[in-house]
């Protein structure tokens, strides 16, 4: 079925020629032997230069001290060895490719050819034979003749995937008690009544007078270090991280619960309710908290309401007060799950 015909000798009766019917133009190298010789030299020099560059790569690797730097305009100060290794190895492989293309373009035959396509359908006799084979297989296996075998086989195949459902159901760790469902694990954090609020990283307890109006602190619960030690991961921080900000009590429009602030200090989750980026991008004059991932913006003076962006839920607020030594503590866990929405929350 394949028909390879040099362009020009193609029969004129073909109505739909895939090649535009233009005369074949000869290249300089096709007619002038000196031009052909020149093209040959060009290709050979590229391959030769590639070899020289490989040698230069090895020489650079051995000879250049790894701490030598060189100033290159625009790029600035860079390691000489790095740039030499990159240039020599990159150019050597580039020249192999460029030489091959130059060779093909200048010297290899460039006649246009047409390759006719196969008929896409199978021949009628092959189709009929396949259908006959199927029928014969059905008869010989007795699939239609033994209904009890057919039905039990279908039943076995239907039940076979069920163990996989159990294995998938068992993927979560089960939480502290070992029997918590995933939504229960997501619904509580390390915060509880009288849990001290510590400055993140420095672990210092916080007095209300430490935080001026307009102030911001990234904070964690006092039992975080212990829990991370026990669990060996940062899962607890991912749920319990909060930010504390202070504003004039008169500036607070609304909160998620009565008296959840302490003299204008409010505590909100640090985890965005959209897809869970940690956020502390707080503008003290507007009281807006902006998530840099997708620009969700929460108003911390107004119960953490979403004022812009794709987040669907308010930023969860943590109720706080001070203990009898004057340090800030939580009065309970978050009243709603922190972080992004999940299936069970709808």
């Amino acid at each position: 079925m394949t028909d390879i015909t040099p362009h020009g000798s193609q029969p004129a009766k073909l109505g739909h020629s895939p090649v535009a019917d233009v005369p074949h133009a000869l290249r300089v190298a096709d007619t002038d032997p000196r031009a052909a010789k020149r093209a040959e030299r060009q290709v050979a020099s590229m391959f030769l230069l590639s070899m020289i560059l490989v040698v230069a790569f090895i020489v650079s690797f051995i000879m250049i001290d790894k701490d030598t730097v060189v100033y290159i305009p625009v790029f600035g100060v860079v390691g000489l060895m790095t740039i030499m290794l990159g240039l020599t190895s990159g150019l050597s492989i580039f020249l192999i490719g460029a030489g091959a293309i130059q060779w093909a373009k200048k010297l290899m035959p460039d006649v246009e050819v047409v390759q006719m396509r196969h008929e896409m359908t199978s021949p009628a006799d092959a189709t009929a034979e396949a259908a006959a084979n199927y029928e014969r297989g059905k008869d010989e296996s007795g699939f239609a003749r033994y209904p009890i075998i057919r039905r039990t086989l279908i039943g076995a195949m239907a039940l076979f995937p069920i163990p996989a459902v159990f294995l998938l159901r068992d993927l979560w760790s089960g939480g502290e008690s070992g029997i918590e469902s995933p939504d229960e694990i997501l619904s509580h954090t390390l915060w509880r009544e009288n849990m001290h609020i510590l400055v993140a990283e420095t672990g210092q307890k916080i007095r209300p007078e430490d935080l001026p109006v307009g102030g911001l602190v990234s904070a964690v619960p006092a039992n975080l270090a212990e829990e991370q030690e026990r669990a060996g991961n940062q899962d607890a921080l991912g749920k319990a991280a909060i930010i504390l900000v202070r504003m004039e009590p008169s500036e607070i429009v609304a909160q998620q619960g009565d008296g959840w602030d302490y003299q204008g200090i409010v505590a909100y989750s640090k985890i965005c309710t959209h897809v869970g980026c940690p956020i502390a991008l707080y503008e003290q004059r507007t009281h807006h908290l902006l998530c840099p991932c997708h620009q969700s913006t929460f108003d911390l003076a107004n119960a953490g309401a979403v004022v812009f962006g794709p987040a669907a839920r308010n930023m969860p607020q943590l109720p706080i007060t001070v203990d009898n030594e004057g340090y800030l503590v939580a009065t309970a866990d978050f009243a709603q799950p922190v972080g992004p929405s999940f299936w069970e929350r709808g």
């Binding site: 420095t202 935080l211 001026p212 102030g215 602190v217 707080y282 004059r285």
Partner: peptide, 18 residues
């Protein structure tokens, strides 16, 4: 001082050494 939008990082929660 927390200029413009920037919140204040007071000496109480972020001491001079930090």
């Amino acid at each position: 001082t927390g200029p413009q939008s920037m919140p204040i990082f007071s000496d109480g929660t972020l001491p001079k050494e930090n």
